[in-house]
Simulated scan of single mutants.
Amino acid sequence: MRNDTRLVFNAYLKQVALLNTITAATEKFNVTPSIQQKLEAAIKESSDFLKRINVIGVDEQEGEAIGLGVLSTIAGRTNTASNPRTPRDVSNLTKDSYSCKKTDFDTAIPYKLLDAWAKFPEFQAMLSAAITQAQALDRIMIGFNGTSVAANTDRDANPLLEDVNIGWLQKYRLNAPERVMSSGSAPGKITIGATGDYKTLDGLVYDAIQLLDPWHRRRPDLVVLVDRDLLHAKFLANIEGASDNENELAAARIIANATLGGRPIVDAPFFIERGIMITALSNLSIYWQTGARRRHIKDQPEWDRIADFQSSNESYVIEDYGLGALIENIEEADPSAPVDSAGAKS
């Protein structure tokens, strides 16, 4: 680390210590609640997807889901001559619970990168942004791919952070399997095409909406989270005429305005391959425990880097299982396969 970099980095350490009312950020400390709140807000704001779901602090490490943004029908009428009016308790709709698991977000930043940033007046903001953005992307990846909570995670065996926490999709597999479609006429896959289980992705999504509770099926905020590769055949004709340097822009524009089964598509980062989820984004939550974030910033000259050790207790929550459905193992049908007597669903 250059001398001028050392000066601005030391100023950063002093600022972190000042904000958390501690003597030194180079010793492990408990992040103060107000700074934790600001850090969580920064993590959320760094991702367009996280802005659209619930990211909320909870006091207890374990408890029942809060039911944010989830409502059932409440309209009705009571003959008060014989019965009292009984308000609908919407808090009873949620069936999920949460358990915030300790998650380490440890970031290493090489001296060379710090040296490159040191000349900028916004050095502290750049360093903080790099750390918060990494945490935001990891949270999204865990939410869609997490299947277990390992005592010792293995990044090589689980490159999509599958063993860090139990994510939203796994919650459906474990707790609401009746709302998961994973097989069609052939075990272990759902086929799309003239000879498949469904002729089109639209037909599949339209049918899967019936897995939602009746009062949620026509909600105006229902969206479809989908693996982009599944959209290839559907939108290929719309973009293949564009020149190479226009393809990505054309694809992004088409997806942004497209629908499946009559519902808007959300192009979610790190969504599972060959999968679709139908829900409202307000049904997806990340809970973090207030007062449980720990931090330790350490200079590691033996590695020519600084390390920012952070940990947070958090959980991935489905607010109402009736407001969602998961479809996975989607494949293109073999065009040479015979069509059964019922034929593929449109």
Rank of each mutant, 00 (worst) to 15 (best):
R293S: 14
R2H: 14
R179A: 14
S183V: 04
Y206F: 13
G63Q: 02
Q37P: 08
L236K: 10
D299E: 10
H232S: 11
N152T: 12
R85I: 15
K51W: 06
W117K: 08
I192H: 01
A81W: 14
S34L: 15
Y316K: 08
V8M: 07
D229W: 03
E178P: 04
T32M: 12
R52T: 13
L160N: 05
N329C: 04
I254Y: 00
A344P: 06
G67F: 02
I239D: 01
F49K: 07
V70N: 13
K234S: 01
R88G: 10
Q61D: 10
G261K: 02
P301R: 02
E246C: 04
G262E: 00
A134W: 05
E319N: 12
I265Y: 00
S346G: 05
D207S: 10
Y12H: 09
G67P: 02
N175R: 10
S128A: 14
L113C: 10
I327R: 02
F29T: 04
I278G: 02
K189T: 08
P110D: 07
G324L: 03
S311H: 09
H296W: 12
A251Q: 02
P187Q: 15
K102A: 09
L161G: 01
S336C: 03
D106I: 05
T26Q: 12
E319H: 03
V70P: 03
S128F: 06
P33R: 11
I109F: 02
K95H: 08
I43C: 08
L50W: 07
I327P: 03
D267N: 09
A65W: 00
T86G: 07
T107K: 04
F9Q: 06
L222Y: 04
T132S: 07
V8D: 03
S183E: 15
A41F: 08
V224T: 05
D229M: 07
L71Y: 13
I265C: 00
I53Q: 03
A256T: 01
V164I: 13
P159V: 00
R263G: 01
